[in-house]
Write a protein that binds this DNA or RNA. Structure first.
Length: 556
RNA sequence: GCGCCCGUAGCUCAGCGGAUUAGAGUACUUGGCUUCGAACCAAGGGGUCGCAAGUUCGAAUCUUGCCGGGCGCACCA
């Protein structure tokens, strides 16, 4: 709570002459609404007994807060527990659903995530990173940021060479017209199968490998020469289009919206130019015919940015991307979300950029997450490349949902989104389809149900709730929990960690259920107050879920 | 070998700029619907917070060292 925070800060300054930022915590309900341990922190530098410090501060706090506090108590080794008056708590709760952090107010933020490779299949990780990325972007947006959601991806590179090689095997050479034989609804799968063939050939067959390397170079040439007419280029661009159509369809399906794609082919010229310029200035260096950045002086490792054939690696493409994002948005913050396998790689890239454009590097945040594993394992098909595809995860969710008697993709998708966002970003997650669609326990569908149930009470009442005033014990518990919402969002924004929202929403629902269990709303002598609480509760649920990209229908 | 991340209840996870009694979900046991949507609620069992030291009045949380797992370390993305 901002007000309490400010009061405490100034009291600490006034009474003890120290500029200590007091931390306000939400303690166990029995201890009060807020707790702070400043006294314990202050005791040592002041050379005083923590209880004494706490007593002194508590007395001042009591005096300052006046009627706003019902109780200011010192407990344990020197905690100060504050219990707000009902009126103060009520006021706080009433503005909770719409109170938003201002952290990114007036700032331009570029959020880059998902990053699929053209000519390849979307796997489970793309689904995960898209869901998490959306949630992070939503948080920043809620905190006032002007968010631009962008998507990077490899439409050139060895993987394209592999797919193109296999495509031409299947077409019997450079026969773009034969692509017409591939049915529209098979485009994506057909290319995925080609990639697997190319990948296998690259590993097993020296001749094929040499051909793929050659094809890879030709793809770069197609871009360099802006070739759209040669048979080879026509195959490439047709399949390129198929890939991006496939991505668009997928994002539409999961409700992700990107402002733009940055295919690597467009970042390459900028990347090459930048790296070469900075090679001249000594940021990058030549080594064995390649152009590298030596990370060792910074405690990092060396990476190749332009290989000895003169082709840009992922590193140079990423440098180009960073420069382009800066040119186009002049961002205050650039957030890049990827698998954590890229953590150290990205450190090197950003460190290299920091050498010639420190402000870009300083305004870049790399958020990394783990991998998705399916609970109980999945049957993998080598024909499909030994990976769990994004559609496989959605299919598993849909299947589990059907088994539970709910046959609609929207609810299955909500289940997946919640399951993906409810754990802290960083570690691998284990996705259990059945648990995710379950209406019991900490799941997306459960919260949707909780919301619908609250709306149903509101509908039954047929009128709006009144203003909150005095509160009985259960009402107070619910109001207290509702009042936490802005603090939770603030924390989620500060840490860029959407799981805090999930944890909170579930706790809130539990608090509500206790409230709901103990006394009726409609027809209760305290109906006006209770109904208002139901409204606030439903609004918080709806707003919180929307941050996670999950809809809150009125009815299920 | 070096570097990064991770190890909390049977399982899945919160808690981690130290602090009031380590929490949820799930699974298991029990009780509660003629009552606003019981998809819920109440109660119970279940934890050497990987191990060991250190810092501290106080450590799941900070430091160091082990052990275990994941990932990364030059021309892939």
């Amino acid at each position: 709570m901002q007000e309490l925070d400010a009061v405490l800060t100034s009291l600490v300054h006034e009474v003890f002459g120290r500029d200590e930022a007091p931390e306000l915590a939400r303690p166990d309900e029995q201890f009060g609404d807020y707790a702070t341990n400043v006294a314990l922190r202050l005791a040592k530098p002041l050379g005083k007994n923590p209880r004494e410090v706490a007593d002194e501060l508590a007395a001042k706090l009591r005096e300052t807060l006046g009627a706003k506090a019902k109780d200011v108590a010192v407990a344990g080794p020197g905690f100060i527990n504050v219990t707000l008056s009902d009126a103060a708590l009520a006021a706080h709760a009433q503005q909770a659903p719409n109170l938003k952090p201002q952290t990114y107010q007036g700032q331009v933020v570029v959020a880059e995530y998902s990053d699929p490779s053209a000519f390849k299949v979307l796997h489970a990780g793309h689904l995960y990173t898209s869901v998490v990325g959306d949630a992070v972007a939503n948080l920043v947006e809620a905190a006032g940021g002007e968010v631009h959601r962008v998507n990077f991806g490899g439409d050139v590179g060895l993987h394209v060479g592999k797919t193109m090689w296999a495509i031409m095997q299947v077409l019997g050479g450079e026969n773009p017209d034969k692509l017409n034989d591939v049915p529209q609804d098979r485009h994506a799968d057909w290319m995925a199968e080609c990639y697997v063939k190319g990948e296998q050939a690259y590993g097993d067959n020296e001749t094929a490998k040499a051909e793929i390397v050659e094809i890879n170079k030709r793809v770069y040439q197609v871009h360099a020469e802006n070739d759209h007419d040669s048979p080879f280029a026509r195959i490439y661009w047709t399949c390129w289009k198929w890939s991006y159509d496939y991505f668009d369809a997928f994002y539409a399906r999961i409700g992700s919206h990107f402002e733009k794609y940055y295919p690597e082919s467009v970042t390459i010229p900028v990347g090459l130019k930048t790296v070469r310029e900075q090679l001249a200035k000594g940021v990058y260096q030549e080594s064995d015919g390649a152009i590298v950045f030596k990370g060792e002086p910074f405690g990092l490792h060396t990476r190749v940015f332009i290989n000895s054939q003169g082709l840009p690696t992922y590193e140079a493409k990423d440098v180009g991307l960073i420069m382009m994002k800066w040119d186009e948005y002049h961002f205050d913050r650039s957030i890049i979300i990827t698998d954590n396998a890229q953590a150290q790689y990205m450190e090197v890239v950003v460190k290299s950029v920091e050498q010639f454009a420190p402000e870009l590097a300083q305004h870049t945040t790399h958020l990394t997450h783990g991998r998705v594993k399916l609970a109980g394992g999945v049957k993998m098909s080598s024909r499909k490349g030994n990976i769990v595809r994004a559609v496989d995860v959605l299919a598993a969710a849909n299947e589990a949902n059907k088994k539970a008697g709910h046959d609609d993709e929207a609810s299955a998708l909500s289940a997946v989104k919640y399951a993906f966002t409810k754990t802290r970003i960083g570690s691998d997650i284990i996705y259990d389809p059945e648990e995710s669609v379950s209406l019991e326990g900490n799941s997306g569908p459960y919260l949707q149900y909780a919301h619908a149930r609250a709306r149903s009470i509101i509908n039954k009442a047929g009128h709006a709730g009144g203003e909150l005033g005095d509160l009985d014990t259960n009402e107070r518990s619910l109001a207290r929990k509702i009042s936490e919402y802005p603090e939770v969002i603030q924390r989620a924004v500060d840490e860029l960690m959407p799981h805090h929202v999930c944890t909170y929403l579930y706790e809130l629902a539990q608090t509500f259920n206790r409230f709901y269990e103990l006394a009726k709303v409609v027809g209760n002598p305290r109906e006006a107050t209770r109904l208002k609480l139901v409204e606030l509760y439903a609004d918080v649920l709806k707003n919180g879920l929307s941050l996670l990209g999950i809809a809150a229908p009125e009815k299920l």
